[in-house]
Nucleic acid binder design. Sequence first.
RNA 1: GACCCCAUCGUCUAGUCGGUCAGGACACCGGAUUUUCAUUUCGGCAACACGGGUUCAAGUCCCGUUGGGGUCACCA
Length: 472
Amino acid sequence: MSLRVRFAPSPTGNLHIGGARTALFNHMLARRQGGTFILRIEDTDTGRSTPEYEAVILRELRWLDISWDEGPEVGGPHAPYRQSERAGIYAAYTQKLLEGGMAYRCTCTVERLDALRAGQEAAKQKPGYDGHCRDQNLGADCGPHVVRLRVPDQGETVVDDYFKGPVSFANAELDDMILVRTDGVPTYNFVVVVDDAHMGITHVLRGDEHLNNTPKQLLIYAALGLNPPRFGHMPLILGPDGSKLSKRHGATSVAGYREMGILPEALINYLTRLGWAHGDMEIFTKAEAVEVFSLEGVGKSPGKWDMDKLLWVNAQWMKRLAPERVAEALRPHLLARGLQVEGRDLTAVVLALRERARTLVELADGAAFFFQADQDVKRDEEAAKAFLGPDNVAMLAALADHLEGVDWTDAALETSVNQFCTAHGLKLGKVAQPARVATCGQKVGPGLFQTLTILGKETALRRLRAPAKNSA
RNA sequence: GACCCCAUCGUCUAGUCGGUCAGGACACCGGAUUUUCAUUUCGGCAACACGGGUUCAAGUCCCGUUGGGGUCACCA
């Protein structure tokens, strides 16, 4: 039987980086083993799930190049892949459990349960359902009710975890969980079992936070007489301080990192490497990782999010990718700054600046002066004071005259500027720095010759001749 | 609190069945290169949580302690 794995997000928010990594590992395992990767939308929480979030999740997965073989928008033999559209399937199983006595109706009110829980907590007991309706034998005519699983009081349930080995839970620790709510909508633990079984899932690889759910699900498999898949719980991603990753640690969503100017190739690389290793491999494409991917390389302890490393990985990808590809990713960031980039060659800009930026945002910031009108270029007054004194202004005017007839290419400009330096007995730095400040407004920036060519002859000469004009 | 998981440099990690200087990467520090900044490059700093065992030999196996994390919903 070939491998079938799935990613089952709940559309109640943006795609989280933890979810993205879970999806990624499942996807890579499927690709590696020639299996099938299924995407299933778990929208049984009708109050919080929205089609908008579902669309966002699909969009982000595609941005990351995590493709699915079955699921929304691509279909498949087990459609529908949205739980809200599978109600009939769950109802049949509920009926089966009720008739077999593995589940029972419960009319306890939310108020009663809240009071029960409050009492247990006050008495420092483990909160849980007390089995009030368990043996009442309530029929379908009992009024508003939920359906609960009858969990054995004795014995234990063992989860044979792929990564951790056998983990056993005393059944007494598990209470009679709700399978179907009062409104008739089944709960997560129930539908996940039905769907995984129905869809022929062979391996469930999910975050560690689900380990405590697994014995409950195993009990449901048993009650239903279904064969459970193999389970593997992967360590979580923690914040830099070791606590649960949250907004105060920075962006937690995939979209957040895109907006921050992280390339998908870099995010995939970093996410893969966090919690997984293959020797000394650090920078690799998803395809390269797939070639050597195996669950053996997945670590057991949680990893802390390291923004510095992500930034480094991103910098590597900015330099490694074809400049055209980076330019394409850069364009939206320039547009977001209101810069006129129509018809401009962004490839040259990328080439000039990518070694000086770790993100597309930094790249866009550094490239702004190429696209702004002279008077809008942000100006470092201190640099102007240091490099644009009267002598230098005169020198730059002379340089502009000298460059007037030159072929406007990097190589020709370099030759010509060097001639100018020799003729005036100046070291290149004495000419380049003032010229840089005059053209960029800053004392740091791309190489001078690239700056001049990208700016274009007309703009470049104008800025050299009137360096103070763009001063506010 | 109860249950469960985890434990190699500050961080991500390598370390096949226990046996050579505990290796790489990020970050940090220093040198070289350089028209600025950066890139690149060379070098440096830095870890087996603690305590018991088992063994000729333990980062590697066992137990405990400590620490960190997860879960205890008519959320997923």
